[in-house]
Nucleic acid binder design. Structure first.
Lengths: 327, 327
DNA sequence: TTGAAAGCGCTAACAG
DNA sequence: CTGTTAGCGCTTTCAA
């Protein structure tokens, strides 16, 4: 048995293809009676419209492209998971592509999205992507793009990312509130803009509150470096701040190695996606920067873009503190 | 400037659409000269074939559907990541769908894949999926399906999953080799077939080697339950086995709470995807069951299916032990 | 070696 | 209210 098409339905009902087409989509021109007949038969025969014919005709698909540096990441995982739900609920599918943090592959992926005539693209750019102006001109008319998380610096485009300043400020305030006096603060690679933003806000918060805490700032580009840094820096500290999950993991290894008790001997607070902090006992207190909320915002922005009703905008998502027992 | 189509190229070169089409795909009928001319212009104008027209014509797409219970999972994450690479290298795109472990949504997702005329479907079924015979008849001709990880029990279909028996056997052998005498073994929910398989193989290995170790078997359906179980069961144990990452996390929390030293006071071994064990110090020794290898196998099986050269097959992927310092 | 023509399944302007 | 018609961009027979 072959595919059920509009033509087949039309023939069976002695109607024209266009009438059937219109009946199926509740076009007001069609009489209630005809509409009913058509819909009934369609249901019985399990008619499913041919997506490709529709796409060819309308020149766009109900698909969105998603390009990330890597899928293996708590953050992107939560983002994609959340985005998939939104998409499904709205009748869209998601095509997932990873760039491996390589600008060349990123460009290929963009092209691919264009070839697939996606309705829009969500992208978190690579560390080395410095000019996205060509991305924004992709397609005719240009395909809507929503940048998220790792967003380009200068271009006027839709950006949705974590409010790094707010997150770091919250963490600093928590440490001040707990009257910590000797703080080890471990940040990521100091070349990254995310590090710079978080560090600046962290620092300024202590100044703003006239805190007298001694703060030792360290940088670590990996979990292993964070471990090394913590092994040295934890001595005498009554609290440690970790800028990211990656760093938290290294620091926690050091704490375990040194046999320090949390929170009595040392307090811990991190900025995190929320999964890693639950792996420890007591659970780590953290400032949440998960992809879930970001995905919801990004998706509704995208829908607005597709509908043509969007203005260019940069959105920052504020975090909340999730209390564990570590501070 | 609008899209470049075959017709446009044809007009510019004073050729017919069909000649251009053939030239572009190196059809032997076309003269070298014409072929060159066509390809050159195509390159200059950055011609890109319209995917939807091709799909409509050929009635299938270069897309695969991937359906999983949830994207948020180390295992599926590694699987999808690996699959995406394979797919991209072979000119395919991936449509990712999650079922939320709900058979109804799973079915909807399958329908969706069919509507998108995917070339094939990779699926890890929900815990409640008990009849996949309808899945196998989806489409005309039926869409190739490769089941992975959580595979249906009885149907004759392509299945690719972790060799649970082998993994549990390796873990048991490691414990025996280390001459552990008092082993706490924490398994998952005893209704799950994965638990039953791992438990049986674990048990039988100790019998096979005439081990005199005392083994206390516990079941835990969640990280929290694993924590509770370990808090009681760790007393007097010189080693603990964790059937999964979920359980490992709970057990490690208990070990931290009790302040036990690894590996001196208690040895730890787990079956794991490989990420979680690196979060601790010393790193946990584990039997690897990651999605990477599975994805590569699944993909090549799928390619064979698409090419029509596949026979139905059940594949089991053997694990390897990764030494940390925990045993 | 190339071209003409039909048609994949659908939509939408236009005509009745 | 319904039908006719043209065509989206491509592939593929068939004919020249």
């Amino acid at each position: 048995m072959s595919e059920v098409t509009l033509k087949k339905l039309a023939d069976m009902l002695n109607l024209s293809v266009s009438t059937v087409s219109r009946a199926l989509k509740d076009h007001p021109d069609i009489s209630a009676e005809t509409r009913l007949k058509v819909k009934e038969l369609a249901l019985i025969l399990d008619y499913e419209p041919n997506t490709y014919a529709i796409n060819l005709r309308t020149n766009h698909s109900k698909e969105f492209g998603v390009i990330v540096p890597a899928i293996v990441s708590d953050f992107y995982q939560s983002f994609i998971s959340s985005l998939e739900e939104e998409a499904r609920l709205n009748g869209y599918s998601l095509i997932i592509l990873q760039s491996g943090d390589d600008p060349l592959i990123e460009l290929q992926n963009l092209k691919r999205c264009k070839q697939n005539r996606v309705s829009g693209i969500f992208i978190s750019v690579t560390a080395k992507t410095n000019d996205v102006s060509s991305y924004l001109k992709l397609g005719e008319p240009p395909i809507p793009i929503v940048f998220f998380d790792k967003v380009p610096a200068y271009e006027a485009c839709n950006k949705i990312c974590v409010d790094d300043i707010h997150a770091a400020t919250l963490a600093a305030e928590a440490l001040i509130l707990k009257k910590k006096k000797n703080i080890l603060a471990v940040f990521g690679n100091d070349q990254l803009s995310i590090t710079q933003k978080r560090l600046k806000a962290f620092d300024e918060t202590f100044i703003k509150y006239n805190s007298e805490a001694a703060i030792a700032i360290y940088h670590a580009s990996s979990t292993n470096e964070a471990f090394d840094v913590a092994m040295k820096g934890l001595d005498g500290a009554d609290a440690v701040f970790c800028m990211s999950d990656e760093i938290l993991i290294g620091v926690m290894k050091a704490i375990q190695t040194l046999g320090l008790k949390i929170p009595n001997q040392v307090g811990v607070i991190a900025i995190s996606g929320g999964l890693i902090p639950t792996f420890y006992y007591p659970q780590i207190t953290y400032i949440e920067t998960s992809g879930f909320k970001l995905a919801k915002m990004a998706f509704s922005k995208m829908l607005a873009c597709v509908a043509g009703s969007a203005y260019i905008q940069e959105l920052k998502i504020e975090s909340v503190m999730v209390e564990g027992g570590s501070l």
